[in-house]
Simulated assay, not measured.
Amino acid sequence: AEYRIGVGDKLDVRVFQVEDLSFEELVVDTSGNINMPLIGAVQGAGRTASEMASDIAGRLAARFLRDPQVTVTVKEAANQKITVDGAVTKPGVYEMRGSTSLLQAVAMAEGPTRVADLTKVAVFRSIDGRRSVALFDLSAIRQGRASDPQVLGDDVIVVDTSRLNSALREIVGALPAFAAFAYF
């Protein structure tokens, strides 16, 4: 999935051959917008860079430029938090910058413990306002037999252990397949 712009992200906005409308660094404000000359506030939060570029180009084309070519690039993502729990050395809430993979997230928590079951690593995520979970095999990812998925801000990663609570074990056990998010 393409990265969704968030509050505090730093964006590079370029309008081809129009220096006065090109900016190396615009910060998405707390209301989720950036401000540009001529067109004013442009919604950024919750959108992809290409969606935002299309919006800016459309607004410029409507009144000011003929067929503007606009690119939006996320230069720096604001700090986002993920929770890593279960059988890891240092469970807790961690800040991530930019894209972070599942392996990197577990490494932030100083890796799995000796009692960790690496074949059952659950990633909990909110998708369209509903809580969902996907199960991943971290040992297969480490061996290169499976792809290393990206984790997103507000994800909760739980590395399974024999002491995992029974409610979570039932949810994880009911999943139809690995690496696919399912609602519960």
Rank of each mutant, 00 (worst) to 15 (best):
L175H: 05
Q17H: 15
P68K: 09
S101F: 11
A45H: 05
D137V: 06
E110T: 11
R163I: 14
A53F: 10
D155E: 04
G144T: 09
V93G: 02
P149E: 02
Y183Q: 15
G40Y: 10
D154G: 03
K81P: 03
A45D: 03
L103Q: 11
M96E: 01
V42F: 08
D20P: 09
R4W: 05
L21T: 07
P112M: 00
V27W: 08
G32Y: 11
R14Q: 13
M52E: 00
A78T: 00
K81E: 15
E19Q: 13
G8P: 08
A57H: 00
A146E: 03
G44Q: 13
F16D: 14
G40T: 05
G153C: 11
R97N: 12
L118D: 08
T48C: 02
G92T: 04
R142W: 00
A1Y: 02
K81C: 10
L135N: 00
G44K: 13
V156L: 12
M52P: 04
L11P: 01
P149N: 01
P37M: 14
Y183D: 14
S166P: 05
S31Q: 12
Q143P: 02
V115T: 15
P176C: 12
F23M: 13
E51M: 00
M52S: 11
E19Y: 03
V42G: 03
S139L: 12
L65R: 05
M108V: 12
A78Y: 10
R4K: 10
A61C: 06
Y3K: 05
R163G: 14
G58S: 04
M36P: 10
R163C: 13
T48M: 03
V72E: 00
S31N: 12
G46S: 04
R145E: 14
V106E: 01
S147E: 14
D12Q: 15
V13P: 10
S101M: 08
G6T: 11
F23T: 00
P112R: 05
Y3I: 15
V121E: 07
A57T: 08
I141R: 06
R130S: 05
R145W: 07
G6M: 01
T113V: 01
L138S: 00
A109P: 02
V7A: 06
N165G: 09
S54H: 07
S50R: 12
V121S: 02
